[in-house]
C-alpha cells in the first residue's frame, strides 16, 4: 500500500497531467499569437511541476534539476528570445490564419487525445506505475495536438510554438518513463531546444524582411512543375 504522501503526490501529478492537456487545448483554441505563447508557458510550468512533484517524492535530484532546466529554458529563455527577435510579430499581428475553424480544431484535438490513449494503451496497462499511467498518454496527446496545430496554422511563430508544444509532450512523458536520464543529456536537449528557437526565429526575421510576410502559405515559389517530353 502506497504511503499517504505518495498518494497525494500521485494525485497532484494526475492534476498536473490534466492541466497540461487543458493547456494544449487552449493553444488550439486561441487565435492571438500572444495568447498561444502564454498557454505554452503555462503548459511548461505544469510539466515542470510534475517533475518537481515526482522528484520530491522519489528524492531524485535529477528530476528536480530537470524541472529547473524546464523552467529556465521554456518559461524564461525561450519567451525572452522570441520577444527579442520578433517583437513585431508577437505584438502587431493579432489573429492567426487557420485552415480549419476553432470548433472543428477542438474536436480534432479531442480525437487526437483519445487516439493517444489507444496508441500507448498496451504499454500503460503493462506498467504498474501510476505516474507512467498518467504521464505517458498525456505526453503522447500533447505531441499529437502540437503536431496538429503545427499543420493547421499557416504562420511562422504559431508553427514554432506548435513544435515547442510537441517537445513539451515528449518531455512530460519522459519524466515518467526516463526519470534517471543522465543530467548532461537533459541539459543538451534543453540547449538544443533553445537553439531551435533561435534558428527558426532568425529565419523568420529574415523572411519578414525579404518577403514581407510570415504566412507560410504565401511562400509557394518552389514547386514541381511537370516537364513535357517532346
Amino acid at each position: 500500500m502506497a504511503s499517504a504522501q505518495t498518494q497525494l503526490v500521485q494525485g497532484l501529478n494526475a492534476l498536473a497531467a490534466g492541466l497540461v492537456l487543458l493547456a494544449a487545448f487552449g493553444m488550439v483554441t486561441t487565435r492571438q499569437v500572444q495568447g498561444v505563447l502564454r498557454f505554452l508557458i503555462v503548459q511548461s510550468l505544469f510539466v515542470a511541476a510534475s517533475a518537481f512533484l515526482i522528484g520530491f517524492n522519489r528524492c531524485s535530484v535529477d528530476l528536480l534539476a530537470l524541472g529547473c532546466i524546464m523552467i529556465a529554458s521554456k518559461v524564461i529563455t525561450i519567451p525572452w528570445v522570441l520577444r527579442r527577435l520578433l517583437p513585431g510579430e508577437l505584438y502587431e499581428r493579432r489573429e492567426i490564419d487557420q485552415f480549419i475553424n476553432i470548433p472543428t480544431s477542438l474536436l480534432i484535438a479531442l480525437l487526437l487525445a483519445i487516439a493517444a490513449e489507444f496508441l500507448v494503451g498496451p504499454l500503460v496497462t503493462a506498467s504498474a506505475d501510476p505516474v507512467v499511467q498518467a504521464n505517458l498518454p498525456i505526453g503522447m496527446a500533447g505531441l499529437l495536438i502540437g503536431a496538429y496545430s503545427l499543420i493547421a496554422r499557416r504562420e511562422a511563430i504559431p508553427q514554432l510554438i506548435g513544435i515547442l508544444a510537441m517537445e513539451n509532450g515528449a518531455f512530460f512523458a519522459g519524466i515518467a518513463v526516463a526519470p534517471d536520464l543522465p543530467l548532461i543529456a537533459e541539459l543538451a536537449i534543453a540547449i538544443d531546444v533553445i537553439l531551435i528557437v533561435v534558428v527558426v526565429g532568425v529565419l523568420t526575421r529574415n523572411i519578414t524582411r525579404a518577403v514581407g510576410t510570415t504566412e507560410a502559405a504565401a511562400m509557394s515559389e518552389l514547386r514541381e512543375e511537370p516537364r513535357r517530353w517532346r
Partner: peptide, 30 residues
C-alpha cells in the same frame, strides 16, 4: 526569397521530427 522559402520548408519538416524522435529515444531508454 527562394532560399528562405527552401530553408523554411526544410526547417519545419525536419524540426517537426525532433520532438517525435525525442519521444522515441526516451521510450528506448525506458
Amino acid at each position: 526569397p527562394g532560399a528562405l522559402e527552401a530553408a523554411w520548408k526544410m526547417a519545419i519538416l525536419t524540426i517537426m521530427g525532433a520532438p517525435i524522435s525525442l519521444f522515441g529515444f526516451l521510450t528506448l531508454y525506458w
